[in-house]
Amino acid sequence: MYLNLIKFKMNTENVKRPDRIVKYKATAAVSTQEDLTSDYLNILGMVFSMLGLMMKLKYCAWLAIYCSCISFANSRSVQFEDSKQVLSSFMLSVSAVVMSYLQNPNPI
């Protein structure tokens, strides 16, 4: 019922202007509310992996892996440096787990 409510005639032919196409410039201002979860979790992951490495706390090492997974899932795939950061936090957390199990192979 509502479709015919908007009865304005769509004279579509002369509406299109192929000559005045404007390329999309990714204006930084577009992303108004910056989504920071990825960065926060990245830092949290670094802290946890440091804890896991230094204090040999196995829980922290495992939590570090989870944090880097979550920051990977939320990462804005467009910026390149984001993916480098996520990769480095992954490597750090995996090394934290490996180190803590090398030193003390008993289960948690």
Partner: peptide, 21 residues
């Protein structure tokens, strides 16, 4: 694809409008 949950589409080339995101 801006991120795994944000997709944007740019349309342009119309009278009265520079572009529509």
């Amino acid at each position: 694809k801006d991120s795994d949950s944000i997709y944007s589409l740019w349309c342009s080339g119309r009278t009265l409008v520079e572009g529509m995101l």
